[in-house]
Design a protein around this nucleic acid. Structure first.
Lengths: 158, 158
DNA sequence: TCGCAATCATTCGTCTGACTAACGTTCGTG
DNA sequence: CACGAACGTTAGTCAGACGAATGATTGCGA
């Protein structure tokens, strides 16, 4: 039987390619993203939704521009995300009385409940992705990745 | 002055997001990809080009379908890549006499020279991406990523 | 040996995600 | 009070991953 899906036989890739860090990053990221996206789709959610809900829970009500900065979602794309979350009743978009340019985005009670479910789901999905690694290895991996990102941020603000 | 480019202030992201492995993977992969792509662009090259050239060097002349399997590039996209490489004289596309469905792709001498330059470039770019990590940390990272990928491959062939 | 399924190269098209440009509105500040 | 900056929104570009269909060819089973 032929395999139903994507992804080459990794064994077939030449060693020079197989150990190339940038390539490994790209492939694992793609894999992880698929797992997470498919998992979230089952709960009628999207990673962007999760990012916004989490940020709202930790920061309290904020403007869309602020959400954009904190989540990394472009403010143009954020419009759609907020629309979807508002349609589902997870979030409320109200004009800011103190600054009529802004909208204040507020997490609703229902959104809070939804987030609780997503938290569990996300945890399970991360677990699925990291399954072959031990706990210390997982921490090591996230720490290394975080260091790379930190360096990245520094390199463009100087 | 406002910062010229992309990428949010990582510091602003909530901790729950900042430490999410799938998110770290996505962001670092995006970063690494940008570094590599921009670096290769300066040499009139593309990561796909590199993948194909390396594979040809290690496997000798093969068909496009075989190249597709080994590099992970889709057969349909590979057509363009081979066209570009052939235009630059790095590769030759000849019909396979033993199987008239196939093309045999051969690395030319010029392609070999080009690849030598790309090898150095790629090494430098990997170095730039991994700069904040020590040598053992780099090995650790690639090993962990490779393990994740391996597990991924297994999970869909069973 | 005939016929059917599989394989190959290729073309075209879809879908998603990152990203930019521009606009009207509102605010802060010189 | 004028001008530049920030805000939300719309529309669009561009690249990459991926699928479908086609015509040519091959191998294999009946």
């Amino acid at each position: 039987m032929a395999h139903t899906s994507h992804s080459m036989d990794e064994q077939a890739a030449p060693a020079r390619l197989r150990n190339l860090p940038s390539r490994l990053l790209a492939l694992t990221a793609m894999y992880a993203d698929r797992v997470v996206s498919e998992g979230l789709a089952g709960a009628d959610a999207h990673k962007w939704h999760y990012a916004v809900l989490v940020t709202l829970q930790e920061s309290g009500p904020v403007s869309q521009a602020e959400l954009s900065r904190r989540t990394g979602i472009y403010r143009s794309d954020l419009v759609t995300v907020i629309n979807e979350l508002a349609d589902r009743g997870h979030v409320e978009r109200t004009p800011d009385p103190t600054d009529r340019r802004r909208n204040v985005i507020t997490l609703t009670e229902q959104g809070r409940r939804h987030l609780r479910r997503l938290d569990e789901l996300i945890a399970a999905l991360q677990d699925e992705v990291l399954q072959p690694l031990s706990e210390p290895e997982r921490e090591q991996l996230t720490e290394l990745l975080a260091r790379l990102l930190l360096h990245h941020g520094r390199s463009l603000s100087t």
